[in-house]
Simulated assay, not measured.
Amino acid sequence: MNPLSRYDPIVEDPAAFHDACERPLPSVVRVNGIKATPDRIRRAFESAGVEFDPVGWHEGLFRLGEGESPGNSWPFVHGWVYGQEEVSAVPALALNPDPGERVLDCCAAPGSKTTQLAARMDDRGLLVGNDNNLGRLSALRSNAERCGVTNLAVTRADARNFSLKPFDGQPFDRTLVDVPCSCEGTIRKNPDALDNWSLDHVEGIAGVQKGVLERSIEITRPGGTVVYSTCTFAPEENEAILQHALENHDCRLLEYELPLEYVPGLTEWNGESFDDSMRRAKRIYPHHNDTGGFFCAKLEVAG
């Protein structure tokens, strides 16, 4: 049985959902605002003979033509663009950092969202990119260097016990919590993503996700913003994690604008009820916008 069939009761068109999950994912690049503009990328792709189309909901994203690879163009080599799945751009938009702020990306490698945050910060302020995987951290450093990021401090730590000591003990203004997950939403990019799927794995990784989100709330200043995101559909890894945070920490879910199709977060699943404010979270299914699957929620730390 396809593990994704468990979500048939919560998607409005199960047939379209499953059909979309079986189609290959379009290649997308994000314009790196530190080095380039959308107009500059249009001209560069045209001169290089790269087929592309703009993404309607975000001027800094371009879908590449069939057979095109993000890494095969000179704008990529020069750090003008970053190969990034379309809905992967959502968390940084929701976090919306300002130049000069203190921002943490607590599960940062290999760096797609980190470099996006740096560009939105105009490469100013403090941006900390943390991960506990040494091999992935080398990719983060390489990608940040290629993109011309200079405001980034790279750390290696388990995000569940991230320490503020190296940063003068001062909390962050905003924290991105894009946690490791069961990756169900990446099925279009990784057709074998669900080969080893099990409910035990989903429930096991949920414990890690709770710890990462809890620590992130603790190290974000009162009035600060925390964005929680996954590339999976499982309510056990999404709404249930947020519910745990709402019940154990002084925080609240915020509404935010998102200019693409989505559905609200769930208020119940398999007999479990969630806070009504969970509707402010956003579920993005592959058949909505011809993308991967994603979940994203925005929290405010009480202050």
Rank of each mutant, 00 (worst) to 15 (best):
M1P: 13
M1Q: 14
M1G: 12
M1S: 13
M1R: 09
N2D: 15
P3G: 12
P3E: 03
P3L: 12
L4H: 15
L4W: 12
L4T: 10
L4G: 06
L4K: 11
S5L: 13
S5E: 15
S5G: 04
Y7E: 09
D8T: 06
P9W: 03
P9I: 09
P9G: 07
I10H: 03
V11M: 01
V11I: 05
V11P: 03
E12F: 02
E12Y: 01
D13S: 12
D13H: 12
D13A: 15
P14Y: 04
P14F: 00
P14S: 06
P14Q: 05
A15N: 06
A15P: 10
A15Y: 07
A16D: 02
A16Q: 11
A16E: 09
H18M: 03
H18Y: 05
A20C: 10
C21G: 14
C21R: 03
C21L: 05
E22I: 08
E22D: 09
E22Q: 15
R23Y: 01
R23K: 15
R23I: 02
P24C: 04
P24F: 01
P26M: 02
P26T: 06
P26G: 08
P26N: 07
S27F: 10
S27W: 06
S27N: 15
S27D: 08
V28H: 13
V29L: 00
V29E: 06
R30H: 06
R30I: 10
V31F: 01
V31S: 11
V31W: 05
N32T: 01
I34G: 02
I34W: 00
I34S: 01
I34Q: 05
A36Y: 01
A36K: 11
A36F: 00
T37N: 13
T37R: 06
T37E: 09
P38F: 02
R40L: 12
R40P: 02
I41D: 07
R43N: 13
R43K: 15
R43E: 15
R43M: 05
A44N: 04
A44S: 11
A44M: 07
F45D: 09
E46M: 01
A48H: 13
G49N: 10
V50Q: 11
V50H: 06
E51Y: 07
F52C: 14
D53V: 06
D53W: 05
D53G: 05
D53C: 03
D53T: 14
P54S: 05
P54E: 10
P54A: 03
V55E: 07
G56R: 04
G56T: 09
G56N: 13
W57R: 08
W57C: 04
H58M: 08
E59C: 09
E59Y: 04
